[in-house]
Amino acid sequence: MLDDTDRRILRHYQHDATLGPAELAELANVTPATCARRLEKMQAAGIIRANRAVIDWHALGYEVEVSLRITLDKTNPRAFDEFILEARAITHVVEIQTFLGRVDVRLSVIARDMAHYQSIYRSSILTLPHIADIEALMHVAHLKSDEVLPL
């Protein structure tokens, strides 16, 4: 379980994972050795899963993001597994989520433009197995995209 010190460290770390141990320790009001030890412990426990670069897709020429809500034909007991396996192989699918309810899977797909998206859709998405229904939602704006937790 996390104590107040761990929460203080995480509160600052999640806002800027590029902080060095000394800077983070100062903000969290602990020694650098304590900070480093606590970070290692939280990483080993799986609380801190990764440090990663957040890349602006638009800066790389991707102007279109589409969210596909997919209902699978669940008459095949392996429908989910087979669908997910093949969807993971599509490089332009940047996120896959599964749900309980009418929609089974949501794919987030990026493309350079609508013609590129149409090509991905026809050659890669429509060839995925066990699709019963697809609903496409065009992303207009990201109003909040924050993984910061209230610690």
Rank of each mutant, 00 (worst) to 15 (best):
D73R: 06
A53C: 09
I48N: 05
V64Y: 03
I48H: 09
S67D: 13
Y62M: 04
I55T: 08
D73M: 04
A50I: 06
G61T: 04
R37A: 15
S67W: 08
M42C: 05
A53H: 07
T71R: 05
A45Q: 15
R49F: 03
L72K: 06
V54Y: 04
L39P: 00
G61L: 07
R38S: 10
A53L: 12
N51F: 11
V64C: 00
A44V: 15
I48Q: 09
I55H: 02
A45M: 13
C35N: 00
V66I: 08
Y62A: 02
A45Y: 09
L72Y: 06
A53M: 07
T71Q: 00
R37I: 07
G46K: 00
T71I: 09
E65G: 05
R37N: 15
R49K: 14
A44C: 06
L60N: 08
V64M: 07
H58E: 08
C35T: 07
A44P: 02
V54S: 02
A36E: 11
R38W: 04
A53K: 08
W57A: 03
T71V: 12
I48E: 11
I55S: 03
S67C: 12
G46Y: 01
E63N: 10
A44Q: 15
I47T: 12
I48D: 08
R37G: 14
L72W: 00
Q43L: 14
H58L: 10
I48T: 02
L68H: 06
G46Q: 05
Q43Y: 11
R49M: 10
T71G: 06
G46W: 04
L60H: 13
R52H: 11
V64E: 00
D73I: 13
R69M: 08
E65K: 03
R37Q: 14
G61S: 09
A59P: 02
H58Q: 15
N51H: 13
D73A: 11
L72T: 01
A36D: 10
E63F: 08
V54Q: 07
E40W: 13
E63L: 14
D56F: 01
M42I: 03
R49C: 09
R38H: 01
G46V: 00
W57R: 05
L60A: 11
D56S: 09
A44E: 14
E63T: 15
Y62R: 01
Q43H: 11
D56E: 11
A45L: 15
E63A: 12
A59C: 08
E65W: 06
G46D: 05
Y62L: 06
R52Y: 03
Q43M: 15
L68W: 00
R49T: 15
R37T: 08
R52F: 08
W57D: 07
A50N: 12
R69E: 10
E65H: 06
R69N: 12
K41S: 13
K41M: 09
I70H: 02
A45C: 13
